[in-house]
Simulated scan of single mutants.
Amino acid sequence: MTTAELMLAEAGLVGDIAAGTMPGLTAALAALDQETGISADGRTRALAQFRDNLSRLAAIVADRAAHPEIAEIAIDRPVFILGLPRCGTSILHALIGADPQVRTPLQWEVAEPSPPPEAATFDTDPRAAGFDAYVAANFTGAWADILKAHPIGARIPQECGMILETAFQGINPTMLFSLPGYYDWYHKADTSFGYQVHKMWLQHLSWRNPRQRWVLKVQEHAYHLGELMRTYPDAVLVQPHRDPVTVMASISRLIEVIRCVSFTSIDRAALGRELLHLWHDGQVASMAWRKANPQVRVLDLRFKDIVADPVAAVRQVYHHAGMDFTATTEQAVSDWWVANPSDKHGQHRYELADYGLTREQVETVYADYIQTYGDFL
Results as ranks from 00 to 15, higher is better:
Glu5Asp: 15
Glu5Ala: 13
Leu6Trp: 10
Leu6Cys: 12
Leu6Gln: 15
Leu6Lys: 14
Gly15His: 03
Gly15Trp: 04
Ala19Val: 11
Gly20Asp: 07
Met22Gly: 02
Ala27Pro: 12
Ala28Asn: 04
Leu32Thr: 07
Glu35Ile: 04
Glu35Lys: 00
Thr36Trp: 00
Gly37Arg: 03
Gly37Asp: 12
Thr44Ile: 08
Ala46Ile: 06
Phe50Cys: 03
Phe50Glu: 07
Ser55Ile: 09
Ile70Pro: 02
Ala71Asp: 15
Ile75Trp: 00
Val79Ala: 08
Val79Trp: 06
Ile81Asp: 08
Ile81Asn: 03
Thr89Phe: 00
Thr89Tyr: 03
Thr89Gly: 04
Ser90Leu: 09
His93Asn: 11
Leu95Gly: 02
Ile96Phe: 01
Pro116Cys: 06
Pro117Asp: 07
Ala120Ile: 14
Thr121Cys: 05
Asp123Pro: 03
Asp125Tyr: 00
Pro126Val: 04
Arg127Tyr: 02
Ala128Gln: 12
Gly130His: 02
Ala133Glu: 14
Val135Pro: 09
Ala142Trp: 09
Lys148Gln: 14
Ala149Pro: 11
Ile152Gly: 00
Ile152Cys: 05
Ala154His: 05
Arg155Glu: 09
Gln158Glu: 15
Gly161Glu: 11
Ile163Asp: 07
Gly170Leu: 03
Ile171Asp: 13
Leu176Cys: 10
Ser178Asp: 15
Gly181Gln: 11
Tyr182Ala: 01
Asp184Thr: 11
His187Asn: 12
Ala189Asn: 11
Phe193Asn: 08
Phe193Thr: 10
Tyr195Lys: 01
Gln196Phe: 00
His198Val: 05
Leu202Trp: 00
Leu205Ile: 06
Pro210Arg: 01
Gln212Cys: 03
Arg213Ser: 13
Trp214Leu: 04
Val215Thr: 10
Val218Leu: 12
Val218Trp: 13
Gln219Asp: 14
Ala222Ser: 15
Tyr223Met: 13
Tyr223Asp: 15
Tyr223Glu: 14
Leu225Met: 09
Gly226Val: 11
Glu227Cys: 05
Pro233Leu: 02
Ala235Ser: 06
His241Phe: 03
Arg242Leu: 05
Ser252Glu: 12
Leu254Ser: 10
Leu254Gln: 13
Glu256Ser: 00
Phe263Ala: 01
Arg268Ile: 07
Glu274Lys: 00
His277Cys: 02
Leu278Thr: 14
Trp279Ser: 00
Gln283Glu: 15
Val284Gln: 13
Met287Asn: 12
Arg290Gln: 14
Lys291Pro: 12
Lys291Trp: 10
Lys291Ile: 13
Ala292Met: 04
Ala292Ile: 08
Val298Tyr: 06
Leu299Ala: 02
Val307Asn: 08
Ala308Val: 11
Ala312Gln: 13
Ala313Asn: 09
Ala313Val: 12
Val314Met: 06
Gln316Asn: 14
Tyr318Thr: 08
His320Lys: 05
Ala321Met: 07
Gly322Asp: 09
Thr326Gly: 02
Ala327Gln: 13
Thr328Ile: 15
Thr328Ser: 13
Gln331Phe: 01
Val338Ser: 08
Ser342Cys: 10
His345Leu: 09
Glu351Phe: 00
Ala353Gln: 14
Asp354Met: 01
Gln361Cys: 05
Val362Pro: 12
Glu363Trp: 04
Asp368Phe: 00
Tyr373Asp: 09
Gly374Met: 03
Gly374His: 07
Gly374Val: 08
Leu377Arg: 10
Leu377Cys: 14
Leu377Trp: 08
